[in-house]
Design a protein around this nucleic acid. Structure first.
Lengths: 151, 151
DNA sequence: CACGCATTCCCACTTTTTCCCACCGAACTG
DNA sequence: CAGTTCGGTGGGAAAAAGTGGGAATGCGTG
């Protein structure tokens, strides 16, 4: 599983050096093959090892094509899903369109999230985090799944 | 399967270079033969490898002819279906009538959607995408298939 | 039958992408 | 404290992909 927040840099060609502690696991899990796509809610990218992604894609594709909500989700997620591969120096190349979507500049944050990574522009990540901390969770109605959550 | 968003250009003759990463798969799947037709809901084109299309056409033809909705779907989709073929440089020629339907100008987006592609005018794609992102999905009634979806 | 328009095929140029190597800095080790 | 190794970074060269134009072929028309 992937954990932790890493400050990473995108060079002028859009390449990103995957932190070494993840490399071995990525190679053994998917032979270095990854899929990047956009996040539906936030301006960040989601990066999955290929096998993990294929499960998700299968679920998405089974959704009814004529349903507008499902269609929207398919277009965003499958429509932006791009194959990436670790190069000989353990870097991945983020294509321009995805870079634009997530407003990625030179410094970014790579966040481990279990079966995937999230890639955020550094400034946006910091701002968002501050926002999340400000929200008073107790004032909200928690969905039932969270009521019983024990951390 | 086809995924990802590709910026493509239609030249003055209406030709579109299929991104190379898809070409091999298209050739082995259907010997380079594709079908383009119109989308029911949006001003974009749908492009299927021939065998995939034949399945779709079969499903459409099985729909009850007396149902007006089904009839409309048949007329739109089967009625606009056009044979395309990859030429020696991996390009397809989009016929003028379909170009008009999807208001395609010089720059377009080719979106992989599993068993098919969608072809959008670039500006329309960008606008639509922004619209989709603005919608707060949680506020909508999600179809039951989506409720439990974990990405 | 001849002419003109439209389509198709093919070639060549330009730009982009990919691959590879070399350098720099930091950290660890002897 | 110096030497060595490893991770990160940048750039350059080779390869591939995209783009446009021109010639040839086919079709419809006058």
């Amino acid at each position: 599983m992937f954990r932790g927040a890493n400050k990473v840099t995108l060079d002028s060609k859009g390449r990103l050096a995957m932190p070494t502690r993840y490399r071995e696991r990525i190679v053994e899990r998917s032979n270095g093959r990854l899929i990047a796509t956009v996040d539906r809610a936030d301006r960040c990218l989601l990066i999955y090892p290929l096998p993990e992604w294929e499960e998700i894609e299968l679920k998405l594709r089974r959704l009814p094509t004529l349903n507008p909500v499902a269609r929207r989700l398919q277009r965003l997620m499958i429509g932006h899903a791009t194959d990436l591969e670790l190069d000989s120096s353990g870097r991945i190349l983020i294509p321009p369109s995805l870079r634009e979507y997530a407003t990625l500049s030179r410094t970014a944050m790579l966040i481990g999230q279990g079966n995937r990574f999230e890639l955020w522009d550094e400034a946006l990540w910091n701002d968002s985090r501050e926002q999340w901390l400000k929200v008073d969770e107790t004032a909200e109605d928690l969905p039932p799944e969270l009521e019983s959550l024990s951390l």
